[in-house]
Amino acid sequence: MHELLLYGQVPAPRHEQVLKILAGVAAMQPRRVLERHIIYKPQRAPEEPGSHLRRGGSQNVTNRQTKQQGAKDLFYNQLVQKLSEEDFGQGDGYHQPSGKPLSADTEPGAEPKWSLEFQDIPDTGDRGVSIRLTTSTDLVSGDPHTWMVAAGPHQFVSEYYVEGHRFVHGNVIIFLHRVLHEPGVRSLETAPKTDLPNFAALQPLDPSSAYILEAKVRVQDFNNTAVLEAGVDELKAFQKRMKGCVDLELPDRLSLDTRVKWVPPPPPPTMRRAQPGHR
């Protein structure tokens, strides 16, 4: 599945107004959405760029043409948990942790709460909207964190919360939201919290508490040009319609990069000793 995306920014004082305008445009009441995103990263370190290229001479038999494969990119993945207001902690941090592990168990007929989402880096195409490949897998049972750690193997990176409102206008999914996080040092945590903090204790990641307006069209038959064009046109029509209210723009491709960066290893300590000798 591919996503066509446009983003806009709404400063906090205009949030109410934009919410009302969107309700009028979409002719529906906003739906409150609360989500927790947990980010995982593969435990394997990414290869050095260009390391697959053969250096120096080869002693292989020359007529054997081995296919030169590019280094496989490694991506961050995220688990998304749908939340409601009741899921958050009620007290002010004094309540007893329940110690229950995370559970994605869903009753038959109910909507699954947990899903694994993968987002590729956006296409390099020039269609006026950002296009990226995504996959979403619903988890219906088990402990999602344990599964995630075992499946990669992955390691926990961090978690954040998203609160906002969703509208649907034709095929355009409009999501007016902002990112919240728990203030404080987070690097020590190695697993997502099983007990959610109090909702009031969360702080917006952007200190000005501005909102992000995301307009998204999902396309299944990506290779069918007519379908893709229809999706792009619909998204652009929405962009045009919102002109003067919120400027929807094409996001920078690299800012949506989900690949794990290659960090060069620290230089070997012998180098240090060698340097004074040179002087």
Binding site: R31, V168, R218, N224, A230, G231
Partner: peptide, 14 residues
């Protein structure tokens, strides 16, 4: 109709 319209639409297909 309103309810269906408010649901997240399925991805575009042919």
């Amino acid at each position: 109709r309103l309810h269906r319209r408010s649901q997240i639409p399925p991805p575009l297909t042919q």
